[in-house]
Design a protein around this nucleic acid. Structure first.
Lengths: 165, 165
DNA sequence: AACGATTGAGTTGTGCACAACTGAATTGTG
DNA sequence: CACAATTCAGTTGTGCACAACTCAATCGTT
C-alpha cells in the first residue's frame, strides 16, 4: 500500500482504465463488508427470529423507547416504504404494537410490547459476538466509523448537488 | 435501563447497554455508507440506464471480457439467484448475450454485445465523478479498502466457525 | 374560517440478496 | 463402464430498499 500518496503528480493522472478498475473497489469493498455483516447477523440472529434490519429497529426502540415511524426512519436512514412492512412484520411477531398518535393522527408510534422489551435480554450478547468476530480493536472500529460517517456525508452532499460537475 | 450509560473509560469492559448502542454503529455506518453510494450511483448511472449492481457486472466484463456466470459471481460475491435475473435484464437491454458453453454445458457465458462494449466509453467518466464525490484522497480510499477487506475476511471466517463461541 | 401547501404513513412496482430447491451436465470412484 | 456425488444455472419465496404515488391530517397564510 505504501506508494506515492499524491496521485496526480508526474505522469500521473490515472488512465481511465485504471479508474474503471479502481472504482469498483471502494464500493465493492463496502458492499462486500456490508453483506458479510448481513451473513453473520443472519446466523447470530437466527435464535431471535429477527432479520438484520429488524434487529436494527429493535436496537433503536430498546435505546430510545416508543417512537413515531418518521423518527425511526431518521435514526435508521429508511423511509416509510421500507419501514411500514417491516414494522408490520415485527407487529405480527408480537414484538411491537403500532399506535396511531392521538395528538397528531398522521403519526404512528412504534411501541415495544412486553415480549419485545423482554427480547432485549436475549439480544444482549449479540453485539459482543459481532464485535469479537470483526477481530478489530475498539479504537479501530471507531476510526472506521468516523471515516464511513464522513464518506456518507460527502456522498449525500454530492447527491444533492447533482447538476453541476 | 435504570442507569445513565456513561461511556467507556476505566473499567475496560463495556457494559451491555453500551455495547447495544455501539453495536448499531459499525454495521449502521457501513450500511449507511453503502446506501449513500447506491444513491449517488443511482443518480450518476441514470444516463446509462444501469442500476448499481448492473454497473458492477459491466465493470467486471469490461475488465475481464467474456466470463461464465459462476466466475462473475466469485468476482462480485453474488450467487446465481441474484445474477440470473440480473443478467437477463442486461440481456434484455441488449448489453450482453448469454451463451451456453459448448465444452461444459452446465456453464453459461456472459458475453458483451457490441452495444455493451460501446457503453464503456460513456461509463468512463463515472468513476472519476464518484471518486470526486467522496472527497477522499486516493491514499485514504486505499486504506479504507484495506480495512474493509480485512473486516470482510474476518466476518466470513466467523460465519464459517459459527458453532463454538 | 378557508384553503392551498406540507407532512406522515401506507401502497405499488421494480430490483437486489439470499436460502432452499430443481434439473441437467460433469466428475470421481469403484 | 456405472453410478453416486458434485457442480452449475436457474426458479421460487421472503425480505429489504427506494421511487412514485395516494390519502388523510395538519399547518400557514390570508
Amino acid at each position: 500500500m505504501t506508494e506515492q500518496p499524491t496521485t496526480e503528480q508526474r505522469g500521473a493522472t490515472l488512465r481511465d482504465e485504471d479508474f474503471l478498475r479502481l472504482d469498483g473497489q471502494i464500493c465493492f469493498a463496502l458492499g462486500a463488508a456490508n453483506r458479510a455483516f448481513g451473513g453473520l447477523y443472519r446466523v447470530i440472529l437466527k435464535d431471535l427470529e429477527l432479520t438484520y434490519p429488524q434487529y436494527l429497529v429493535m436496537l433503536v426502540l430498546w435505546e430510545h423507547g416508543t417512537m413515531p415511524v418518521k423518527q425511526l426512519g431518521q435514526h435508521l436512514r429508511l423511509d416509510s416504504g421500507t419501514l411500514s412492512p417491516l414494522l408490520k412484520r415485527l407487529e405480527a411477531a408480537g414484538l411491537i404494537r403500532r399506535e396511531r398518535s392521538t395528538e397528531d393522527e398522521r403519526s404512528v408510534h412504534a411501541v415495544l410490547t412486553e415480549e419485545g422489551a423482554a427480547l432485549r435480554e436475549r439480544a444482549v450478547e449479540v453485539p459482543r459476538r459481532i464485535a469479537r468476530a470483526t477481530g478489530f480493536e475498539l479504537a479501530e472500529i471507531r476510526e472506521l466509523q468516523e471515516r464511513l460517517g464522513r464518506l456518507t456525508a460527502a456522498l449525500d452532499a454530492a447527491v444533492d448537488s447533482v447538476g453541476r460537475d
